[in-house]
Computed example of a mutant assay.
Amino acid sequence: MDIFTLDIRTLNFIVILFSVIYCIGLLLFQVAQKPIKGLSLFSLSIFIIGTGPLLLSLRGVIPDYLSIIGANLFIAAGFHLTLYSLSLFRGYSVKLTKFSSLMLLVVFVGFVFFTYFEPSIKNRVVVISLYMAFVTISTAVVVIKGRNEDLPLATRMMALSFMAYGLFMLLRVVLSLSGAEIKNFMAANLIHQLTFLFSIILIVSMSFSMIWMINARLLRSIHCLSYQDPLTELQNRRALDDAIPLFQQQAQSAPVCMILSDIDNFKSINDQCGHLVGDDVIKVVAKVTLQSLYDSAVAFRLGGDEILILLPNCNLEQAKQFTDELRQSIVKLTIDEQPSLHVTSSFGIAQLSPTENWKACVERADKALYRVKHNGRNTLAIER
């Protein structure tokens, strides 16, 4: 095992270098983009992890409480902060972080005891390795089980890196306990040299995975924006154009109904109350529309106050019941800026025929809607 050796001071320098580079890079990324929860703490954790080896490399130059206790506590605190930051980033409970905080106190007591009261490098290695095993395996759990939607491949890569590092730390504990007392840590055997090499690999891997996940989030956000109406969060015309072929195909084997609606007297609302209130009206109507949809139903904003709803696996009678419930929900709405404003909507319903063009179905729904508005509004009509 001692045939192949690595210089610990050189590895320390590489750890420090990578930590600083990735910390600065991620912080600049955070500044340039919309702030991402947990990213600044994640960047700081990488820097703190690198500070530990810096102090460690000054052993013999600075006091032991800095080069031994301080160095290892910086490393432990850095990984603790990594666990906390990834809990925030992935939307996971901070319970493991709280337990990690208590273990940090145990690490501190252990290092003080095995430095001043019963000096033992081997026991210090066991203490820090056990903590590192716990915190990195816990981080792997957080990354995998986090609630936030992230790129699966990137999350698995990050989790695997932390899990592998944690298992290596357990192996280090076993080999340290079965080995002789360490006389000089800077000249320790290969298992301890590999710790620094694997730390470099972990820093690179977790930083790359983090950038990968952030980029995936940005791409997904851009994709959503291109298919979503920014005011109402309903899908837009582009999304409708992509969805129509799918619904036309579904209409070959199951009923698909289309509902076309708009807000009654919307022009008067804009003229009398202002366009900002008009926007608020559109938003609350869109919100209650979204809340009323079942899983496979979709709503689109066509423009202005017009909303188109597609209901798959739904016949005209079911569509009529759905629409009337939605109509009653809209009647109950109130606008904060104009509490006396009474909001209603009118609806036209048509069923998509397996043989007709979807535009013909829109025209029938529009015809039904026109009939409703001509006959008094705040109701619905079906055009067969």
Rank of each mutant, 00 (worst) to 15 (best):
L6F: 15
I16R: 03
L17H: 06
L27N: 14
L27Q: 04
Q30P: 02
S40P: 06
L44C: 13
S45R: 03
F47K: 03
I49F: 08
L54H: 03
S57P: 01
G60I: 05
A71K: 01
F79S: 12
L81T: 02
T82C: 13
L86K: 00
L86T: 07
S93Y: 00
M103D: 05
Y116R: 03
E118P: 02
L130N: 10
Y131R: 00
T139Y: 09
V142Y: 01
V143I: 13
L151Y: 05
A154Q: 00
R156A: 08
R156G: 10
M163F: 11
A164C: 14
L170H: 00
V173P: 11
E181P: 06
F185G: 06
I200D: 05
I203T: 06
S207N: 02
S209C: 07
M210N: 04
L218M: 08
L219S: 10
L219E: 07
R220P: 01
C224Y: 09
S226D: 10
S226K: 06
D229F: 06
A239L: 02
Q249R: 09
Q250C: 08
A254F: 11
C257M: 04
S261D: 05
D262N: 15
N265D: 10
N265I: 09
S268H: 10
V277D: 05
A286C: 12
K287G: 15
Q291T: 13
S292D: 05
R301C: 13
L302G: 15
E306T: 06
L308G: 00
N313Q: 12
Q328C: 12
T334M: 12
D336C: 05
H342F: 11
T344M: 02
S345K: 07
G348V: 05
S353V: 04
E356T: 10
R364Y: 01
R364L: 14
R364W: 00
K367N: 12
K367M: 13
R371T: 11
E383D: 14
